[in-house]
Each structure stands twice: as structure tokens, then as C-alpha cells.
Computed example of a mutant assay.
Amino acid sequence: MNHAKRRTLAVVVTAAVLAVTAACGGRVGENGRIGVVYLNAEGYYAGVERGLRATLGEEGRGPQLLQTNIQSDPARESSFISTMSSAKADALIVSPASATASVPAMRLAKESGVPVICYNTCVEDEQARKYVRAFVLGSPEEFGRVSGEQMADHFLRAGRRAPQVGIINCEQFEVCVQRRKGFERALKEKVPGARIVASQQGLQMDEAVERAQQLLTAHPDLDAFYGEAGSQTLGAVRAVETRGRIGETAVFGGDMSVEAAKKLQDGRVLKGVADISGIKVGRLAGEVARAVLAGNPPAGFIVPAPVDRYLGAQDGARWLREHPDGIP
């Protein structure tokens, strides 16, 4: 769910053009067309787009990508998927806005004969297995475990045996719930006295900053924050900086970006980051879409994406060197 470098990913073909295309029975792209839903405008989704194009080919050589950024809004998602379903797109690659509210859109696509591939997020498992062909997913439990282990080691080095921890969450999405479970399990395995004093949802950056500031007011001796995804992590970092808690409250969390890498390189607040590369996920989603359209869907429903670990200033600097354009 998770950045400094934001890239607006808008619908590239209007509904009117699609309606005419559907009515005439033609194709938007001679090599097919695939609808793509980006959950929000964070840099992760720019990485997904790059990975998709690397796998499916640039415009003119591969299927045309009809893209939209739904800004975490199920209504926008529903409208776009309805248009794609009416136009008989060849496939949909989707990061759904809600585990429950997105179910009708997934059902409509399935009933319209449009195969759906989820990535990053999906609808609740029982419904997903009815309406979705495959789900490209980095293990959320492993994602959370990375941060739990990093935070625990930080506390052990500092001699903190009973630290207070706050969580800024994105638990509108089931993957974030599973991230928290993996985080808490790993943290308490190493530091049994660690206590989660509060968990607040903050999906957008401004909201995440506000929630983190509220937690710092309520718990002025807070030892660390866990941010479940990019906005939550950087929101916590900004709150710590604003409230003058640098050196007192550490932050661990998810999703690399230019800002996260720079904060990690700085090292005063952000200490460690778990990451699932958008580029890698986009490549996998593109490969799955091609396989599904060729009649060779993956054997398993879950298509695993790798979870990467970044810890300390050297890893922040390395990420910046490896991503000079800032695309994660």
C-alpha cells in the first residue's frame, strides 16, 4: 500500500472512445488491450507500469494498456472495470481498492468474460478464488516479519527490553492486516516485553502524518513506529521530525522510494524498510496475463513476488544508485 516520487497514472483512453470501439467490434490495439488499475499515485505503481511494459512490450509491439489511478476509491474502480467489461478488454490487471467493496466489480468482469489478475491487493480470499485467475503477491507475513526482526534487533542493541511501539496502518486492505501479524510475531519473538500501545489507520500521506502526531501526543515516550506501507512509513517519519523526536523515536516500515531511500541513508529516524519492487511485480503480472491469455494459467492461485530487505545508510545509498530515475 505504499512515496516521495509520485506519478499520476491517468486513464489513457476515454470512455467515449472505448464505447465506440466496443460498439464497432474493433480493437483499441491491434495486439489486444489490457485494463490496468493502479490503487493510487505512489511511485510503486509507476514501477508496476514499467514492469508491465517490459514484459508485454511498448505501445505498438504489445497489447495496449488502458490505465487508471483510482485513488483508493471503489466507485472509480467500479466505473473503470464496468467500461473495460463492456468493451471486452482481453484482461484486467488490478490492485483492488477494497477486500469487500471491490467484489461486485470483480464479479462483473468474470461474468463479462474478462480474466482478472490481482496484484498487491485483492478481494477477500473466497471471492477472489471465484472471480480472479491469479494473485501476484509478496508474502505479507514475510513483509511484516522483516520489519519486526529489524526493529527487535534495534531494541536489543539499545538495551530496550520493554519498548512502546505505535503502528500506522493501511488495514482497509487484508494484506496490511497480515503484515501487522507478521510484524508483531517477529518483534515479540525477540523482544517479548515489547508492547503495541496503539494502531491508527492513515491511508494517505497527510492522514498518516496526522495519526502519527496524535500517537506521539498520547504516548510521548513512544520508542518506535511501524508503518505498514509507504505512506504510513513516511508519514510516521515526518511526524517524528515535526515533533522533535529525532533520536528518540525510530521508524521501520514498508516500501522503498526516493524519499524513503534518502531517509534511510540519513539514518536519524528511518532505520529499516521491507520492500516488494513494483517493477518486479509488474513483470510477474505481465507474465501471468500473457499465460492466461494463451490458455496456460499458472498452476497455483498465488504467484509469489520477492520481499527485499533494506537496513541502514548503506542500503539507502545502494537503492538510490540502483534506481537513478527513482522508479521502485
Rank of each mutant, 00 (worst) to 15 (best):
I81E: 10
F225N: 03
E111D: 14
Q201E: 11
L156I: 14
E59V: 12
V175D: 00
A224M: 05
F183H: 06
F143Q: 09
P140G: 08
R53L: 13
N2P: 13
E59W: 07
P104W: 02
G51W: 06
A128M: 11
A152T: 13
A134P: 00
S112L: 00
M106L: 14
A289N: 04
M106E: 07
P115I: 08
F143W: 05
G60P: 01
D206E: 15
R33C: 14
E210D: 14
S147R: 04
G202A: 03
A10G: 12
R283Y: 07
A261D: 07
R27W: 04
A89E: 08
S78M: 10
E171H: 05
R318H: 12
N120I: 09
P298V: 05
A91D: 02
V288A: 05
E58I: 11
G247Q: 12
W319K: 06
E141I: 12
N120P: 05
F135Q: 01
D308T: 11
K263H: 11
L156Y: 00
T217W: 00
T68M: 03
V281L: 10
R76W: 10
A23R: 12
M106D: 04
P192E: 11
K263L: 07
P324A: 06
C24L: 15
Y119R: 02
D275N: 15
G235E: 07
M84G: 10
V177R: 05
A97Y: 04
T68N: 01
R245G: 03
R283W: 10
A128P: 02
P192N: 08
L52G: 01
I167P: 04
A97S: 15
E248I: 10
K110M: 06
F143C: 13
Q178H: 09
E141A: 12
L137K: 09
F143L: 15
S199F: 04
F252M: 08
V191R: 08
